[in-house]
Design a binder for these strands. Structure first.
Lengths: 331, 331
DNA sequence: TTGTAGGCGTTATCAC
DNA sequence: GTGATAACGCCTACAA
């Protein structure tokens, strides 16, 4: 790899002179002739400044880290949506993205170390309430913005989970549904908590009895027995905490011959529904994940630029973006 | 940020002593008491070695770059599959991933510079034939492994496009189809070229006339007029170059009321078909993208480790992974 | 067992 | 205009 020193030697100049000229040289503090010689040599030798050395010197890498405490990678629709949008947003701002790969279940301490080893200027984080990693990060100087799920003590960009769930209940109620189940995940996600709470409040306000607005926890996998169980409880409307769960349930219904929406009406939440096939259009709530990512990046850049001023928590506002209910034919 | 020097000062030691102890200290070249003091202080002060400085010194970052010359991000099913699998594979090898965000259409030279500025040890590349960036990279010292589409002069991990297409033609022919169209993209992708060639050869061998094995180029977007045009040409089997194209076409058929598979039989290629909904199962060829990513990483690590030995092109083998035809109900 | 010296490649601050 | 000099934080070789 060819360095500035190599160029300097070639031209009988000092290395800093080369560096100055190649760095824009705003003050015109170099002879025209020298400048041309330097540019020519740089071109000819294929000089590329070493970004690692520059980062060490400047204390800045222009790299944004992305990490999730959940066990998913970019193939997960949600994370893919976030990271994909970040890629676009980063390109405009001349930033790059680092995906911190941590084995799921590795110690929070270990991950914490990797995140603050100086390789990223800031972090886009997706985590859940009570995550030990978040606890650690809160005390650190690393700028962090949470996405989708707000974390106490961090800036965050989220979707209007409450509004979305209200809209969904409105729609379901208007279609005549009176018996409901909310399928929640095992993990404690703040966004899902909000949805769940609105689900309960809205239905209670409408006079639904406790047994007609049940909360049920499940994981991605085991939707087979759940489908059967739900069917047994007569016709009802199932609000799934995300689209993936809803699709799993739909799939099960197909396998078990359960009529949708006659026996089970199904709604999702995410806006990550698949529109490739027109056959079955899931009712869901569209969350603008691309916008979430863009805004999160904006806030993160602000945090990074204002680093050091008046403590880190200066900007820890939470931005909440509007959602919209998407109708379909599963309710 | 707290450095090794800080610890040294605190304990009245020299900085290298601290560094040595914290780095494993295999030779036991330190007093037990000193070691304990150092570890204690490191713990107490929350010391985290600066990875940027370390990288500068060691000439190694333990970061793998990912770049595509095409205009897509991680939300593209294919790229998502590759990057997602890479995330898993990297975690095991204690590597991290960098997504080089380059605005589509930015100069190859610019991108070339960013890729070899020392921030990544190697590169996973997805590109097409004749890409100027690939030309540049071929001359550089940066270890590169191409995925999905082989590039002359690079190591590559690909799928058995030829075998897959042969299997697909076998299946279509056995189902009685005798009139075919191959939908190809505008770009010149080596993998697609292989599929196209086998498509032609296999059909010619079976005695299909030229007008019954047509090649048609199109982009993602404009499948609307194409669908109508295809329908007009009577019942035929359409082999789409990838699943996304196939789904677009299916969608169009639905909108225009074209019967699938009676009027148009449709097959994809990728294995990125959506199985969330059981309704319409696309006939396609499953490409093991996760395996592609894993193997590519393996080769890349080999290249990195053997860097400097006997020129770079030492290992530029091409690994070709087996595929399988997936039946469905669209043909 | 520990400290000193040097360098990775860059940028910034000064003299000259 | 340009060249020393220093510093970013780390690791390695060698000397003490």
């Amino acid at each position: 790899m060819i360095t500035a020193k190599d160029i300097a030697r070639e031209l009988n100049l000092s290395q800093p002179t080369v560096s100055r000229i190649l760095n824009g040289d705003e003050g015109h503090r170099a002879a025209q002739a020298t400048r041309e010689r330097v540019w020519e040599a740089a071109q000819r030798l294929g000089y590329q400044p070493n970004a690692v050395a520059r980062s060490l010197r400047l204390g800045r890498t222009d790299i944004i880290g992305v990490h999730t405490s959940h066990n998913y990678d970019v193939r997960n629709d949600f994370l893919g949506a976030i990271v994909g949008a970040l890629q676009c947003a980063c390109a405009e701002r001349h930033l790059d993205i680092m995906l911190h790969s941590g084995l799921y279940g590795s110690l929070a301490e270990t991950m914490y170390g990797k995140l603050r080893d100086g390789r990223v200027d800031g972090l886009i984080l997706h985590s859940s309430a009570g995550d030990p990693l978040a606890e650690l990060l809160r005390e650190s100087a690393l700028p962090v913005v949470a996405v989708a799920d707000a974390l106490p003590g961090f800036a965050a960009v989220t979707c209007d989970d409450a509004g979305g769930m209200k809209g969904l209940v409105d729609l379901l109620w208007s279609r005549g549904h009176r018996k409901f189940v909310f399928l929640a995940p095992q993990e404690n996600l703040p966004s899902v908590e909000k949805r769940r709470r609105v689900f309960e409040v809205e239905l209670r306000n409408r006079g639904a009895k406790a047994q007609d607005r049940v909360i049920k926890r499940l994981d991605f996998e085991n939707s087979a027995p759940v489908a059967a169980e739900l069917r047994a409880q007569g016709p009802l409307a199932v609000c799934c905490w995300n689209d993936k769960t809803a699709y799993n349930l739909l799939h099960e219904c197909h396998l078990q011959g359960i009529q949708v929406p006659q026996e089970l009406a199904i709604a999702g939440f995410d806006g990550l529904r698949d529109e490739k096939l027109p056959a079955r259009l899931l009712v869901t709530v569209r969350c603008p994940w691309d916008e979430v990512a863009m805004q999160a990046l904006g806030v993160l850049v602000q945090l990074i630029e204002s680093r050091g001023e008046s403590g880190k928590g200066a900007i820890n506002k939470e931005i909440c973006l509007p959602v919209s209910v998407l109708d379909g034919d599963t309710i």
